[in-house]
């Protein structure tokens, strides 16, 4: 049986693949369209994050074996949280 760590890596690898594939077909992956992954497989695609959460919980109760990705997003962009003085 795959360990939790290897499942996490499988999930991350699949998420990275989806992000790369989305770059080739951006109109099909607008911001706000999410993919729920569990145990290395796509479980649900939806623009409703609550739907993603509930389907993932039905498929896999252990959250560490799940993953949520927004394939149309650029995750390399630095997001600024301005300093709190």
């Amino acid at each position: 049986m795959a360990t939790a760590t290897s499942i996490q890596q499988l999930n991350r690898d699949l998420a990275d693949k989806l992000v790369e594939e989305a770059k080739l077909d951006l109109p099909s992956w607008p911001l706000g369209k999410f993919v729920g992954i569990a145990n290395g497989h796509v479980i649900v695609v939806s623009d409703d994050l609550d739907e993603i959460v509930s389907q993932l919980e039905r498929a896999e109760p252990d959250p560490s074996r799940t993953f949520v990705v927004e394939p149309g997003r650029d995750y390399t962009k630095v997001c600024e949280i301005w300093r709190i003085s």
Binding site: N11, P63, T66, F67, E70, C79, E80, R83
Partner: peptide, 25 residues
């Protein structure tokens, strides 16, 4: 809270480096 993992995000300003995102109700 059983947050579901998502991608890492690079932050700047008050926080630096990459940080994990979770989906949480």
């Amino acid at each position: 809270c059983g947050g579901k993992p998502s991608k890492m995000v690079p932050l700047g300003g008050s926080y630096s480096g990459t940080h994990p995102i979770y989906v949480i109700p």
